[in-house]
Design a protein around this nucleic acid. Structure first.
Lengths: 213, 213
DNA sequence: GATGATTTGTACGTATGTATA
DNA sequence: ATATACATACGTACAAATCAT
């Protein structure tokens, strides 16, 4: 999927800014301004915006500025719920589909994360956490499921910031991961699903508490 | 989400052609040609193609013609599998989330479909079938789940043609729907999930048999 | 393998619709 | 409420890359 077009580069950059929170939900995106910033014409910017709109990261109305997506509270809740199901499905499939080397890698990653928790390094944990979940998406061995789960996670990212900010979240998260890993290694699909579902629910609740709307 | 731009109109039209099979998987889409056909410049056509690419209906590579998506057999199998899970999830949620009037409407629709089966009208059944599944997506009361399930169904549509062609498929499909409806009306989430999962699996198998690759 | 024809990618100008004073 | 300013939607022109020959 390597696209050496400026439209694609711009799409990546804007997506990254939205996901990272540099461009917060609700903010307007000005084509002319972006064109100037990226030193290109408005054409590739427009195409990048169209892609972002299709992937749900921004909202577009005809003849109006594009806005970084800002889903209603209920839509957001629904997205978190779906994300829980999707991740649980991935974890469940891992229990039956993962190859031996994938299981070992997951176990090793989980062990590494224990050290990070002990060091209390929230930033590194967040990074490793992404890798952990990515490994589980991969382990399900279903390309499409991988795609939509990652996409959902991406779209929710702007609303999940600071999830490891609160003290104790790191250790809790790691413990929950432990239950998932153990079930997967045991080949227990139901348990893996359940453990992951619990894990994601808790993350959601952490969000609800944080933003409180 | 009403967009009165020509790009959006073109997107709709092309999506419709792809879903209906007028534009079969693997076929190339020429921007200039499409622009001439729709009597517009290439600009809105290009934007329409970008949207279709983002939604997965076409594949785009830089400097190459866009191709109507033609997933590998294993990717396709994965998509059908995911579709089964998504529909099952919707059905399960319907069992607990549907309002009384929604339950009545679903039951009524199912009854209407019995008559269509009796008449052996495959075309009308296909139409009613879409409405049936749409009602279940709606009944889950989760906007995002509704979106991704419809999107998945859409993307699979080109590979599901003639699913009601074989004699006896109509009656079988209707019977399977019956199990779903009964479980939903009873408020039995697990049973609704299971029944829908079975239903979708069978559709998938019908495909596998048909195309055989 | 080089070259010409064709197609996509980008720039820019004009028109149309939206929003704010 | 009307008008003015401004951003987007579309058309046209050119540049760059691909693929046939």
């Amino acid at each position: 999927m390597l696209k050496r077009t400026s439209a694609e580069e711009i799409r990546r950059e804007l997506a990254s800014r939205i996901i990272s929170g540099v461009l917060p939900p609700g903010i307007a995106l000005d084509e002319t301004q972006l064109a100037a910033e990226f030193a290109v014409s408005r054409t590739p910017v427009r195409e990048a915006l169209r892609l972002l709109a299709a992937s749900g990261l921004i909202d577009q109305k005809p003849h109006a500025k594009a806005l970084v997506a800002k889903p209603d509270a209920d839509v957001l809740a629904g997205m978190f719920e779906v994300m829980g199901y999707l991740e649980a499905l991935c974890a469940g499939l891992c229990a039956t589909m993962m190859r031996a080397n994938e299981r070992e890698a997951l176990d090793a990653l989980h062990a590494e994360m224990a050290a990070i928790v002990h060091a209390g390094d929230a930033a590194r944990y967040a990074e490793a956490n992404d890798a952990f979940h990515a490994a589980i998406y991969e382990g399900a061995h279903n390309t499409y499921l991988n795609d939509i789960t990652r996409s959902t996670r991406q779209r929710l990212q702007p609303f999940r910031r600071a999830q490891f900010g609160a003290l104790g979240r790191l250790a809790k998260s790691h413990a929950e991961h432990g239950a998932v890993v153990e079930a997967i290694l045991r080949g227990d699909r139901e348990a893996a699903e359940h453990a992951m579902r619990q894990h994601i629910s808790i993350v959601e609740n952490a969000y609800q508490q944080l933003v409180g709307r």
